[in-house]
Design a binder for these strands. Structure first.
Length: 195
DNA sequence: AACGAAGTCAACCGCTAATTT
DNA sequence: GAAATTAGCGGTTGACTTCGT
């Protein structure tokens, strides 16, 4: 269907869908010279008939240097699982812990691989061992991470990860040190759990 | 070989937060 | 301080591929 246009207003119809190699090249070249900011301007000045949002996504997920694509290793998978357990669907935070990986890739990987894996394991667990339910949940001292808001699991208690950890602080310098701590602390139990 | 179902993933959409004017 | 603009996030969609019958 052709877009409505009565001619009274110049309405530019933006390109949508898959990016071409030519578009990629234009975007990369422009960003190389001018930097990645003001995406609306980038889109226009790079000569791309795309919205800024689309350019930003393309750059962040595919064109930016040091992007790793595919072949998520076992170690990375473990990390994703653990971070998801801790943070819920906070893909950008999780991606921040995996150099070269993007939130979109992790989200997709979770939805297509890991969520199913988890469901399978959960079913298996509940059908074989009911006592596991009554076992102590995974805890950082004083914190029940099963109750993290936003996680896909049930959140019976009302622990709010935002409140507790204050994500509004400068993560740039803070670098989620507490996550590192948690992961280190959890490492042993995680490995023994799996074996 | 053909076809439908299921899986995968790039890209879009709607919304909120942050920043600028 | 308010309004407008921009950036970023997570959920969802849809095209394409793979698998099973």
């Amino acid at each position: 269907m052709a877009p409505k246009n009565d001619g009274s207003a110049k309405k530019v119809v933006m390109n949508k869908g898959a990016w071409t190699a030519e578009e990629d090249q234009k975007l990369s070249q422009y960003i190389e010279i001018h930097g990645a900011k003001r995406w609306k301007t980038v889109a226009f000045k790079a000569g791309l008939n795309r919205c800024g949002k689309s350019c930003r996504l393309r750059w962040l997920n595919y064109l930016r240097p040091n992007i790793k694509r595919g072949n998520i290793s076992d170690a990375e998978e473990d990390l994703i699982l653990r971070l998801h357990k801790l943070l819920g669907n906070r893909w950008s935070l999780i991606a921040g812990r995996l150099p070269g990986r993007t939130d979109n890739e992790i989200k997709n990987y979770w939805n297509s691989h890991l969520s199913k894996k988890i469901n399978k394991e959960k079913k298996l667990e509940t059908s074989t061992k009911q006592e596991i339910v009554s076992k102590e949940p995974c805890v950082i001292p004083h914190i029940n991470v099963e109750g993290v808001k936003g996680s896909t699991g049930n959140s019976e208690d009302n622990f709010d990860v935002n409140e507790f950890f204050d994500f509004t602080t400068d993560l740039g310098s803070y670098k989620l040190e507490w996550v590192n701590k948690f992961l280190e602390l959890d490492e042993d139990s995680w490995l023994t759990e799996k074996s």
